[in-house]
Amino acid sequence: MPGEALLFLFGTIMAAALLFMMVFFTIMFSDLECDYINPIDLCNKLNQFVLPEMLAHAFLGFAFFINGSWIAFAINAPLVAFNVQKISNNRHMYDATEIFRTLGQHKKECFIKLGFYLICFFYYLYRYDKLHKAII
């Protein structure tokens, strides 16, 4: 199997993992709204995943860039830029003292990312499938 097909297979798996992560985030936020979890625990839990998510996503984007998969790279570049900007403003971590005030925003962001990863998942799968079939 050539590299590019492998890359898209890897991308599919990563997108699925990120998708699950976003589902997890969404569930946690709705738990917070229902008072099943307190904001301190929520932030401690979610903050563990913030950087890994961003790193995984950035790595994937970088891999597409190296490989010259320009469309896949172009899809991912805005989110990478968004994440970099968040980190440079030191706003990437969830703050327990502000979480209720910013919950709406966080949820919206989470839903958008969820949709984004879902689209990515199908796009990578489609690309992988095409590349894979081309070999056979």
């Binding site: 917070l32 709204e33 008072d35 307190n38 904001p39 327990a96 003292t97 979480i99 209720f100 005030r101």
Partner: peptide, 14 residues
């Protein structure tokens, strides 16, 4: 919906 003052919001309305 929103709370102002010196405290920590521990639950949605607590």
């Amino acid at each position: 919906t929103s709370f102002y003052g010196n405290f920590f919001v521990r639950q949605t309305d607590l």
